[in-house]
Nucleic acid binder design. Sequence first.
RNA 1: GCUUCCUUAGCUCAGUCGGUUAGAGCAACUGACUGUUAAUCAGUAGGUCCCUGGUUCGAGCCCAGGAGGGAGCGCCA
Length: 475
Amino acid sequence: MSKQYIKQILADAAIDTAVVVRGWVRTKRQSKNVTFINLNDGTTINNIQAVVEADTITEEVLAKINTGACLEIYGKLIASQGGNQKVEVQVENIKILGEADPDTYPIQPKKHSFEFLREKAHLRPRTNTFGAIFRIRHALSFAIHNYFNDHGFFYLHTPIITGSDAEGAGEMFRVTTLDLKNPPKTEEGNIDYREDFFGKETNLTVSGQLEGELGALALSKVYTFGPTFRAENSNTSRHLAEFWMIEPEVAFNDLTDNMDLAEDFLQYLVRYALQHCEDDLAFLDARFAEEEKQKPQQERSELGLLGKLKFVTENSFERLTYTEAVSILKNAKKKFQFPVDWGTDLQSEHERYLVEKHFKKPVILTHYPKDIKAFYMKMDEDGKTVKAMDVLFPGIGEIIGGSQREDDYQKLKDRAAQVGIEEESIWWYLETRKFGSCPHAGFGLGFERLVLFVTGMGNIRDVIPFPRTPKNADF
RNA sequence: GCUUCCUUAGCUCAGUCGGUUAGAGCAACUGACUGUUAAUCAGUAGGUCCCUGGUUCGAGCCCAGGAGGGAGCGCCA
């Protein structure tokens, strides 16, 4: 007989059948004649209530049933007398699989701060909030593969260790097997990477995009979904040193196609979560509302979490050029801390104003000045701007960055040279423009930023099981 | 990297103008209770006030340095 899990038992609600439930104790309420145990096995946010009538279980066993303990309960599923659940387990026997000493078990049936739970990352999945987050995280991962598979994309595995240092997306983590105390030196006194494992300098990838483009120029539609590493000393609630990124790349797509894809993709993912994570989102919606109540009126969000998610699925994103955005900001009544000027990158406060105050919906900004964007973006006809796009979300900021890629061999070579990238280091990338080049476009979606938006959480460290941030790599 | 705030019981926090024995809620423990919903009620126990140094008759509170954490900014996804 296959094992029973709480989600299925609650869904089937097969009254008067024998059940075996296993899970971790959330709460125990004891009175003279009856004891109630709420058990959760993580398959759903809902607990199952086990009812122990006096004298069925010995005092000795009952005393060991504390919050956090793991139990195997044998009994009968019956209709519940209580109002908060349809069914409950009438207990016949309990086997304690693992005790949890109440004096030292840190997770209590009460509110904990997220800062505290971050230090207990090994146990925090046992809480309602983190259980919900990690189930939603899974659902979104699955939806990503689903979407691309249904749309004829191929999942391309790009390398984690890269010998290319030209991705230009940020500081990199060095990968080496050299003895750091006594590395081999060249005649000039530099470290001799020819002696290293790969015979050259290698790093952890900051983006799979360049390799993704190689795939797109052969398979037409590809995507990557893998871990990405940035050694930037970023101390914010929106950055991780190790995060997961989704990067579709499509041959024959231009910037408009790219925007259409990004918008359809994001709306699909949010809709998928709304359809498949109802219980977890209802819980997080209530949590979000509670959190909002603590904030001063002015900072409160007009919509609840579910409201925000539905809004994104039901409204098209606002599309405008960087130049148009600059003029809106220049004419805004609001005083900004930083001045707005054509040619400089927009500050967070500017992006927030556009998304949260002016348009009040997701915004796609396009055609940025070439000097503030990467070398591989396709130059516009005016020679001043590039076919770039950033998708900005309320409360998150930039969730997607992408572009139509430069497909002209000479122009790409010139741009690389201008920003100081050596031709030898990207010869393979340049060759795709030399042999059978074609228009193509793609983007990068920060997975944790998506999870942040869907769950309504405030800190990116709380939507990945084991966050990696500057000065923190525990667990 | 920059700015700013915080660190008091296991957790979440209060602590007045620098004053004698540092408090509350929750958790834990003991007991009561005929079905509870983070049960309720009564009681018990629980403190390196982040660390180091200084000012003072006297420091949780003031000053200096350090450590850890949060928020904001920059870099970006």
